[in-house]
Amino acid sequence: MNVPQQLIYSHAHEWVKVDGDRAYIGITDYAQSSLGDIVFVELPAEGDKVAAGVTFGVVESVKAASDLYCPISGTVVAANHALLDNPELLNTDPYTNWIIAVALSDHGELATLLTPEQYAELIK
C-alpha cells in the first residue's frame, strides 16, 4: 500500500495535507482498495462547519457505503466536484484527488493525527 511521506493520516483512513491555514482531506490508498470500485461520493456544501471525528460525507461502492469522518475541525472552503461525475478518481489516484479543503480552526488537532510510519503500522 502506498503511504506518501508528506501527508498525515487518521485512524479512519483519511489523509490530510496541510497548506498554511488550509487542509486538504482525502482517503488513503488502503481505504480505496478496501472499498473496491467507488461509484458515488457525497460532498458537504462549501461553508459547512466540520468537526474532528464527525462525518462530512459518504463514499460508496456497489454494496457498501462508508461515512467519511473529518480528521480535523474547521469550515469547508472547497469540495472536489469532479468526484461527483467521476468517483472512480478516488480509485485511480487517491492522493491527488482530495475530497474537501478545510479552513483549519485548531492547528493543535494536527498533532493528534498519525505520521506515515504510524499509519503504515496501522494498516499492516
Binding site: 470500485d37 461509484v39 458515488f40 460508496e60 456497489v62 468517483p87 472512480e88
Partner: peptide
C-alpha cells in the same frame, strides 16, 4: 453472464 454492477451505478 455476470453483470457489470459498477457500471449500473456509475
Amino acid at each position: 453472464g455476470r453483470l457489470d454492477e459498477v457500471k449500473a451505478v456509475r
